[in-house]
Design a binder for these strands. Structure first.
Length: 807
RNA sequence: GCCGCCGUGGUGAAAUCGGUAGACACGAUGGAUUCAAAAUCCAUUGCUAGAGAUAGCGUGUCGGUUCAAGUCCGACCGGCGGUACCA
């Protein structure tokens, strides 16, 4: 004991235990083990050149703690990690520095693995997944072909951000604010035929499936809103003097008698169809052109000031009143939602109201209860239908039902549903992505690559610069483009677009179950054994897209019999962000980025882990603080310094029994509810309590090491080892608490007068109400406040307080 | 605009069901130890008054409900995140 130093050597201890863990099989998940399985999943990182961010550490630590705890609870834990390595930053870096993305990716992945290990994460590193590995994306392509086979893939026109000066298609990130990232010129919306996945076909399933997902309401509502189901009706408005009918979608069929004009999107096909009839075609064309050049940004900015053009020469007829009504084009109606056409009811829709006011159109009230002189009356709870013929006098909800029925019966419309969610534009004009396994043949048309020819590999070429035609770089690589038609063996060409970033991450959680299977994406047996992800943690920003996309793929794979569950995840949580010390989002440009490696170098991995978990509520965002790190280290040193105080007794010190049991109970609950900050606070309190003793027992100490182990495993393993244990803490049973020893016998009771605390007394637990009242009233301090006053009321909350109300 | 979260000491933050506001930590001040410093240990630390016991005030603002409000209700102000004319 004489050589005991007052502060542990983090470098030595970190290395020692990391070597033991990672050279051993401690964290390897065992397929088909008899133990109960537990699958914890964190969102795998994009291996950027900057290395790991403090945000990664926080994101992974929750389930790191849970996974280590589950192993101690006897579970067969699968806690995998991998890399979502396709993507723009790598490609851009590659172009700039003339290094192939493959080389950069491999280099970055290596750095990430090294950093993850330096932090002591208990990932199963034998199941690494890399989405850019052709043995992985072979199955991404396979799923795409399956989707194709089942009619869920189609080609259609999409509007992409195009920079006319660079002649390059830009991602949304590269064209923020409507300006090109590279040359700052205006970005235009260009039409392009691209691949779509019919995710909308799964909209209802994805909505219903949310019932089975355990998560907070925020996560649920964000997904619900993203899917955006709305129930209403299609109504057909005949186009005057033609046999065409203009189809509109509305959720307010009840307001049809108030429709005073129609609005169609600038891209609406009606304009093309009846172009000869349009008397002001030039004006219309000019408006269409203007709308095309409006970036999304501008459309939002200008949203309050509505513009439009009256189409002269074509009119619509209200199918119920036969009234002739004008048609406008305006970009406040989107071609991408509903039918791209609306019946405008200015009296009861704010957008139509604004438009009507601007162009002096009739505003006809059909629901009483508002003041349409002032604003549109959109409330659907109050109000009765007026000026509405067959639905006059009805309430809104009844009117909707009746009018929809009437429309259906008379073939003037039908009940309908719309989703805000759009089909998934599944393409990028980039090199560094999964090739889309499609071949174009002059004779056979679009031909899917046969399954046995997968993977379609990315060519390892030196030239992967963007083309100047808005096509993918792959289009410039003849040895890639030129191929043979699998059907007729004639020369053919390959699809040159690649898949979007979200492709690989839509099924990676399945590949972890069987990462090196070259026959199937994962074996049936393993899929069945591991089942659903038990707990999935990740960023709030992925709750809409990634979560929905991956649920979609999983639902599809379930429908074709590949996976055993429709829903892939049982439970989803999300961590809060760590901001810079200046309370701003961490970014290179702000210079407030914290590199976790610096903390490890200075204080060791356990300090980093402890502090990141201690900093605040896990689900809340919080600024970084350098000074707080020291506190975490100080705490761990205190635990270390307890070691010489440990005696050989194998039971808890009597006077510590209560706090030990309470701490186990509290830490257990806090960890399971992601309240790691309070869990650590409780362990700090216990440590401070131990510190006051001249001696503590081995049992006292060991229980602390066990509950602290998931958070600070290097230190705990070291101390556990120093106590003479041969086995590691990894599978040591997690401590249990004795509920009967978590409650004190003597408890403090607060006595207040008129709600103000005036005295505190110690009393035996469960003292009767009357008794408490009597004791409270007889306290000297209390008497000074009650003397000479009338006692109106006494409230007694057993084991808590007595409140005396006086006058 | 809409939806959600949040607003508590000098700082990060705690606070089951409405029941002792500020646990735990950082920082600060004073002391011990040291030749000195670091580290460590002890004490104090919401604000105001007081030597002190203690008293008054105090959870973004205003109002309400209640014996009792950080917590519930209403109106507002500020910050963050999501979303964007969704018919």
């Amino acid at each position: 004991m004489s050589e005991f130093v007052p502060s542990f050597d983090d470098k030595k201890i970190d290395k020692k235990w990391q070597d033991i863990w990672y050279n051993g099989t401690y964290f390897n998940a065992e397929d088909f083990s008899d133990k109960e399985k537990y699958y914890s999943l964190v969102e795998y990182p994009y291996p950027s050149g900057a290395g790991m961010h403090i945000g990664h550490i926080r994101a992974y630590l929750s389930l790191e703690v849970i996974s280590r705890k589950r192993r101690m609870e006897g579970k067969n834990v699968l806690f995998p990690i991998g890399f979502d390595a396709f993507g723009l930053p790598t490609e851009n870096y590659a172009i700039k520095n003339q290094i192939h993305p493959r080389i950069i990716t491999d280099r970055n992945i290596k750095i990430f693995i090294q950093q993850l290990k330096a932090t002591g994460f208990s990932f199963d590193f034998n199941r690494l997944v890399d989405t850019t590995d052709s043995e992985y994306y072979r199955w991404t392509q396979w799923i795409f072909l399956k989707l194709y086979e089942h009619g869920l893939v189609y080609k259609d026109i999409a509007y992409v951000n195009y920079c006319p000066s660079c002649q390059v298609i830009l991602s949304n990130e590269e064209s923020q604010g409507g300006k090109c990232d590279r040359c700052v010129s205006e970005v235009v919306q260009m039409e392009k035929k691209v691949w779509f996945l019919k995710i909308t076909e799964y909209a209802d399933k994805l909505l219903d499936g949310l019932n089975d997902l355990e998560c907070n309401t925020r996560i649920k509502t964000e997904q619900q809103k993203w899917i955006g189901k709305s129930v209403g009706a299609y109504i057909y408005f005949p186009v005057k003097d033609t046999s065409e009918r203009l189809k509109v979608f509305t959720t307010r069929a009840d307001t049809i008698y108030g429709a005073t004009f129609m609005v169609i999107a600038p891209e609406h096909p009606l304009l093309e169809e009846f172009s000869e009839r349009i008397k002001n075609l030039d004006e219309v064309k000019a408006y269409q052109e203007k709308a095309k050049h409006k970036s999304e940004f501008e459309r939002i900015e200008l949203s309050k000031d509505k513009t439009g053009v009256l189409i002269k020469g074509i009119n619509a007829i209200n199918p119920l009143t036969n009234e002739v009504i004008p048609i406008f084009i305006s970009d406040y109606v989107m071609i991408t939602y509903g039918t791209g056409a609306i019946m405008a009811v200015p009296a009861h829709d704010t957008r139509d109201y604004d438009f009507a006011r601007k162009y002096n159109l009739e505003i006809r009230e059909v629901i009483s209860g508002g003041n349409i002189e002032e604003e549109a009356y959109t409330d659907i709870k109050g109000g009765t239908l007026v000026n509405s013929s067959i639905i006059d006098g009805l309430e809104v909800k009844d009117a909707i039902i009746k009018i929809t029925k009437f429309l259906e019966d008379n073939n003037l419309g039908e009940a309908a549903m719309q989703f805000k969610m759009k089909d998934w534009a599944f393409n990028r004009q980039r090199y560094w992505g999964e090739p889309i396994p499609i071949i174009y043949c002059e004779d056979c048309g679009v031909v899917p690559v046969p399954y046995e020819d997968l993977p379609v590999e990315l060519p390892m070429v030196e030239k992967f610069m963007p083309s100047d035609t808005g096509e993918s770089p792959l289009a410039n690589i003849p040895e890639y483009v030129n191929c043979v038609c699998p059907k007729c063996n004639k020369p053919a060409t390959r699809e040159t677009d690649t898949m979007p970033q979200w492709a690989g991450s839509s099924w990676y959680f399945l590949r972890y179950l069987d990462p090196s299977n070259n026959q199937e994406l994962a074996s049936k047996e393993k899929l069945n054994y591991w089942g659903k992800v038990d707990w999935y943690n990740g960023g709030m920003e992925h709750v809409t897209r990634h979560l929905i996309y991956s649920r979609f793929w999983n639902h599809f794979l379930y429908d074709i019999g590949v996976v055993p569950n429709a829903e892939p995840y049982k439970k989803r949580t999300a961590q809060g962000m760590i901001l810079g010390a200046d309370n701003e989002k961490m970014s290179k440009s702000r210079g407030n980025v914290v590199n976790p490696q610096d903390i490890i170098d200075e204080y060791g991995a356990d300090t980093l882990r402890t502090f990141v978990l201690f900093i605040s509520d896990y689900e809340m965002s919080t600024p970084w603080s350098d000074s707080g790190v020291k506190g975490a280290r100080r705490f761990l040193d205190k635990v270390w310094r307890l070691f010489p105080k440990v005696n050989d007794l194998n039971s808890y010190t009597k006077s510590l029994e209560l706090i030990i049991n309470k701490t186990i109970q509290g830490v257990e609950k806090d960890c399971e509810t992601l309240k790691f900050n309070t869990a650590i606070a409780k362990m700090m309190t216990l440590t401070n309590e131990y510190n006051k003793q001249t001696q503590i027992t081995r049992a006292d100490y060991e229980v602390l090491l066990k509950i602290l182990n998931p958070i600070a495993p290097h230190l705990c393993e070291e101390l556990w080892n120093k106590l003479g244990h041969k086995e590691l803490l990894v599978f040591e049973p997690y401590p249990e608490f004795d509920i009967s020893k978590t409650v004190e016998n003597d408890i403090p009771i607060v006595i207040s007068v008129n709600g103000k605390v005036r005295d505190k007394i110690q009393i035996t637990r469960d003292t009767a109400k009357v008794e408490l009242e009597k004791i409270a009233l007889s306290q000297k301090k209390i008497i000074t406040f009650t003397e000479g006053k009338q006692i109106v009321k006494i409230i007694v909350v057993p084991n808590k307080l007595v409140n005396i109300v006086v006058k």
